[in-house]
Each structure stands twice: as C-alpha cells, then as structure tokens.
C-alpha cells in the first residue's frame, strides 16, 4: 500500500511543494485524491460475479436459492432451511475499508509532516535577520544594551537606550562606508 502511496507523494511534492500554492489546498488535494483512489479500488473489487445465496437441500447438496422458473411446484415446496453465512464480498469490502482508513491516516500524517516542515522552515527575511550584519566591516558584536526590565535606575536606563540607538546608527554608517567603497556602476559597455 505504501508503494502505491509514494509515487503519488512524489508527484504532489513536485507540483505543490515547489510552488507557492496554499498548503491547505495541498493537504486537501492529497486527502481527496487518496480517498478517491481507495474508493475506486473498492468499487472495482466489488465488481465480482454476484455470489448466490445457497440453501442446503435435504440430501446435503447445495442448490442456488435463485427462483427457478422451470422448477416444478414440488421442488419449490421443499422445506427451506436457510443458513446465514458471511458473504465474501462483504469481507472484501471490510478489507478495503481498512485499507482506506489506513491510507487516509498515512496521508494525513504525511500532509501534517509537510506542513510542519513548511511552517518551521525560516523565511528568507528571517534567514537574513539571522545572518544579518555579516559584512566584512561590522564584525558582528552584539551592541544592544537595552535596559533590563528589572532595572531600578531610570536615569541610566534612558542613557543606555540613547546609546543603543546611536550605536545602531553608527553600524549603519559603517555599512555605508563599505558601500561607498564597493560602488558598482551600471554596465556601460
């Protein structure tokens, strides 16, 4: 069953994973497609020749219970001793139902996994902020000295806040110096 699932997953991943299509749509498609696929299998498996209900005859031989138009009235009046048995088609249906359930569970788990990967993956802007200030000049040293919430000296807090802002501006200026050195004109050739 997994072998059946994986080619689908690969295709889904290629088509939706690489694109910016809503994940909700992706999961929905995944679920509905597998549901459809398994339902289709059930329908196909159930298209087997109709098994006839059998009634045992007094001499032990089994005869089809379908009414025989050519049968004599005497035959029709024979004592009917029906025996209820589980039909093979019902068993198949049960088995397919299980398959469908397992398939849906796996598809949901995979879809949730994909969703988790997507949601945990940092966006480019976050990546940038994580690696931010990696320029050759800034020599990233955390200069933030924002006052701690437990601080008890508001005058010093104010002072440190002011210096913190000034240091940020200084960092910007140092970056501008580097940009001034690496000024790249438009290609005029």
């Amino acid at each position: 069953m997994l072998a059946r699932l994986f080619p689908f997953l690969a295709i889904e991943w290629r088509l939706f994973g690489s694109c910016d299509i809503s994940l909700f749509y992706f999961i929905l498609t995944l679920l509905t497609r597998y549901k459809f696929w398994f339902t289709l299998n059930i329908v196909m498996d159930n298209q087997e020749p109709v098994l006839q209900q059998q009634t045992p005859t007094p001499n032990g031989a089994s005869v089809a219970s379908t009414p025989d138009l050519n049968a004599s009235p005497a035959q029709n009046q024979a004592p009917i001793q029906t025996q209820t048995t589980t039909l093979p088609s019902q068993e198949v249906k049960k088995g397919n139902g299980k398959k469908l359930l397992v398939g849906l569970v796996i598809a949901t788990i995979v879809a949730l996994g994909v969703f988790a990967i997507f949601s945990l993956r940092p966006t480019p802007s976050i990546k940038k902020s994580v690696n931010g200030g990696k320029s050759n000049s800034s020599q990233t040293v955390n200069t933030s000295i924002a006052p701690s919430p437990t601080s008890t000296d508001p005058q010093l807090d104010q002072e440190t806040q002011k210096i913190d802002n000034s240091m940020k501006n200084l960092d910007k200026d140092v970056k501008s110096v580097d940009q001034g050195f690496n000024d790249t004109p438009v290609n005029l050739n």
Binding site: L170, D173, V174, S176, V177, Q179, G180, F181, D183
Partner: peptide, 10 residues
C-alpha cells in the same frame, strides 16, 4: 567624494 564623505560622516 562617496567614500570620503561616508568616512567623515561615520
């Protein structure tokens, strides 16, 4: 002027 003024400003 670009690097000069940037350096002076920094």
């Amino acid at each position: 002027f670009v690097p000069k003024i940037e350096i002076i400003a920094a």
